[in-house]
Design a protein around this nucleic acid. Sequence first.
DNA 1: TTTACTGTTCGCAATAATACGAATAATAAA
DNA 2: TTTATTATTCGTATTATTGCGAACAGTAAA
Lengths: 100, 100
Amino acid sequence: MEKAKNTFTENQKLTARFAKAMGHPVRMYIVELLSKQSCCYSGDLSEVLPIAKSTLSQHLKGLKKAGLIQGEIEPPKIKYCLNKENWELAQKLFKNFLQI
Amino acid sequence: MEKAKNTFTENQKLTARFAKAMGHPVRMYIVELLSKQSCCYSGDLSEVLPIAKSTLSQHLKGLKKAGLIQGEIEPPKIKYCLNKENWELAQKLFKNFLQI
DNA sequence: TTTACTGTTCGCAATAATACGAATAATAAA
DNA sequence: TTTATTATTCGTATTATTGCGAACAGTAAA
């Protein structure tokens, strides 16, 4: 049986990628927070989240890599916000996917 | 600094769990398919997806464990459908989370 | 009973994810 | 320049995920 290279649509792959990025309570927390309050600092999160700072950095890095957030240097802090463009894309993709 | 045991809401944990379950193209494909055509057989998927049957079984198992799908034995096949209750819950959770 | 069909589980390997503390980098303030 | 602040990267360990083929289980048909 022939199995095409393109079994999955780009949308499916992208939606899965976003879903994966949000598939951890810490990252879900961060994204949800940023969807409500526009921005925050790593330190703010560190005070609340029950993980080491280095671990938090990794989660932030993962969200950045997935395109969901972006960091702006504001010495000596780093201000994190949602990546507006991709967030809107994620909203659109999930809306379609979930038929809501 | 005091870090509460309940940093995450139940909704955040559940949403992350659903997101994680959908965080792979194969599983995304399956869930999307089932959201559109009510049910399917493992063999149907196996013919289309570029993975071994055993791997497919594992993905189906993961989706079952996350509560997103359910299997009904229809010898010699197994009919898979969305778990209606949890699917609606996921829709609700993501709708809230994504503010859509 | 033997054979065919469908799909799962087992055993294994390779890679990815999660987590921590220590070390590092970059800037601002003293 | 030294110190303080903030957050990342590095090194490491542990666990989870993904994947395959072989072996197994359950049912139906010959």
